[in-house]
């Protein structure tokens, strides 16, 4: 069972690197969607006995992260006529190397942490750190708002992965709360993106520096 979870975390890490290395927005969004589904599946694998609440949350997560948010993002991209190229300020190869180095560092860091013995062999903690780092690299190194939203989503996935460690002890309401937060956040960004697009004819956040006061 643990190996299945590890496989999924490995997939999530691979998708992190894909998101860092791909030059087209649709593939970044696709990577985020698949990662959301993979992460949503995990509570089911972690709980040994079937539990209705867990199942519900898992299905909900998969639906929201795997379908709703990507569809919203794609629609925003279409309606706002954004170019499909990502337009990085940190190049693809450097961000890829950063992400890979961060992943390796995350594995080393997780070894040093005083974890519970049942979590020792698990990739959950390194996967979580790696995703958070990837999210930050995307947020820092991409200038298109949509790509930044994707970075934010990956960052949230990392936090969610960490939360899974506590699945036995913490009420799942917390996770649901995070999810809700996020959905609202994406909606808001979606609306803002639309407004910005209408007002300024561009979604390049690096051109939006005049409003800093």
């Amino acid at each position: 069972m643990n190996s299945n979870v590890n496989l999924l975390v490995g997939l999530a890490i691979g998708l992190n690197l894909l998101a860092l290395g791909s030059s087209r927005l649709p593939s970044v969004i696709g990577a985020v969607a698949v990662q959301g589904m993979a992460i949503g599946l995990m509570p089911l694998l972690l709980e040994s006995d079937f539990n209705w609440i867990v199942a519900l949350v898992a299905v909900g997560t998969m639906a929201v992260k795997g379908f709703v948010i990507p569809v919203l993002l794609r629609r925003a991209m279409r309606t706002a006529n954004i170019e499909r190229e990502v337009d990085p300020s940190i190049g693809f190869v450097p961000s890829l190397l950063l992400g890979a180095g961060g992943t390796i560092a995350a594995v080393a860091l997780a070894r040093a942490l005083p974890l519970l013995p049942e979590h020792a062999g698990s990739l959950l903690v390194p996967g979580s750190f790696a995703s958070v780092l990837t999210g930050f690299v995307l947020l820092i190194g991409r200038s298109k708002a949509i790509a930044q939203v994707c970075g934010y989503l990956i960052l949230e996935n990392g936090i969610y992965l960490f939360g899974l460690l506590l699945i036995r002890t913490t009420p799942l309401l917390v996770e649901a709360g995070i999810l809700l937060d996020l959905t609202v956040g994406v909606f808001v960004i979606g609306i803002i993106v639309d407004r910005i697009q209408r007002a300024f004819d561009s979604l390049d956040t690096s051109k939006l520096t005049v409003l800093r006061e």
């Binding site: 690197l17 290395g21 030059s23 693809f92 190869v93 890829l96 890979a100 390796i104 062999g121």
Partner: peptide, 27 residues
């Protein structure tokens, strides 16, 4: 200009294979 990206990906794949092999030997 995209070639280095793909080759870096190949390098990273091999690097992760190396880490997996290292970890596999530890267990």
């Amino acid at each position: 200009r995209r070639v280095p990206l793909l080759l870096t990906t190949a390098f990273l794949l091999c690097l992760f294979a190396l880490l997996v092999a290292w970890k596999g030997g530890d267990a």
